[in-house]
Design a binder for these strands. Structure first.
Lengths: 193, 193
DNA sequence: TTCATTTCTTAACTTAAGTGAACGAGTTAA
DNA sequence: TTAACTCGTTCACTTAAGTTAAGAAATGAA
């Protein structure tokens, strides 16, 4: 399990065996079962996550309705907003599947950063990369229709469509579950022609 | 003009006079007139921007149609995607107004980073902050209707509605200019009741 | 100024998403 | 096994956005 993490890190910086041991000794690996809520609205959690295996989901409850805005899967990181601005969380995070992840905290990060500045470099590059990818995703979302978004998702993250319930996918695509059903039927109808 | 930049930086790290001089000597300040295109689709520019005064706009041309996806104004930074993945740009960046900005490059950044590690810290915090804000914006966009998005923008960035043409605002909101006109008329109609 | 272009609005019509309701399939709990 | 619930789909109806076209107002250039 740890090898997944170190394999990922090795794409950015190289660690000595001592550094690896130091990380393992932080005891950050967690195994969480399906349905577990990692973060609730209103909480001021300090936990940041990195998914090794599985899938977690971020959602808001607006007017009693769940609005799913993101899924995080293997080798993806999530720093909840409440960690950054130290305010109560506006959203929930729960496990779509049984998930193995690391749980970090700003304290632990600072500890690592001061001991080896390589991490600062990796984290800067990582968040710049994530920011850039996020902007591209946002742009694609803005410039396409729900149907295009669905077809796009089918290309870019086909696994999601299998592992996630339709109604969660729907709000992820910015529409209602009924519209997603209809849209899918429309696509199948078109492909028959 | 430089004071704007140093005032911004001072919110994150403190610079010595020598460091300030070093930055000024990099000759990164530019004054660009309205309509100037800073980045064209297909270009592999290495320029990163920080707006001191004015407004720039990011847009795609999809099927011959301009799709504006972002505006950057005072004290906002933009690292185009092509700088990060070193691939041809998929979008354009142009000046909405006469704009004063700094133009950096990864080379210059590395030079600064190696001379003072404080900058690495600032840039990591900055991009983490931007990532978090970007995610919140994306969430708001996904979970609201075009009308809500417009009302939201009216609250959060009222200046944009004044300084940017309607048809650019429309595609920024993910709709057509005609729909924005209609939507505005609808809001005024409602407020009369 | 005058002519052309851009920008914004309005209108009529089409298309697709939202809404509320109903149904069957599958799951869970009593 | 039955009852309650969730989930996905379908349907009829409503609402809003897309499309096409036209025209008024503002802007810019010759």
């Amino acid at each position: 399990m740890q090898d997944l993490l170190f394999g990922f890190i090795s794409k950015y910086i190289s660690l000595t065996e001592d550094e690896k041991k130091a990380i393992v000794s932080l005891d950050i690996f967690r195994s969480v079962k399906k349905g577990t809520i990692l973060l609730k609205e209103g909480q001021r959690s300090q936990d940041v996550y990195f998914i090794l295996k599985g899938c977690i989901r971020k959602y808001y409850i607006i007017n009693g309705e769940e609005k799913t805005t993101a899924f995080f899967t293997e080798m993806e990181a999530l720093t909840p907003h409440c960690v950054i601005n130290n305010a109560p969380s506006e959203y929930f995070i729960s496990c779509v599947e049984h998930t193995i992840l690391t749980v970090g905290s700003p304290d632990k990060e600072v500890e690592i950063f001061t001991n080896s500045p390589k991490f600062e470099l990796m984290c800067r590059i990582l968040s710049e990369e994530m920011l850039a990818r996020q902007q591209i995703n946002f742009d694609e979302f803005k410039t396409s229709s729900p149907e295009q978004r669905y077809l796009n998702l089918l290309q870019s993250r086909p696994d999601l469509i299998q592992r996630v319930p339709q109604h969660q996918l729907a709000s992820f695509l910015g529409i209602k579950p009924q519209s997603l059903s209809r849209l899918r039927a429309r696509i199948i109808e078109k492909s028959k022609e």
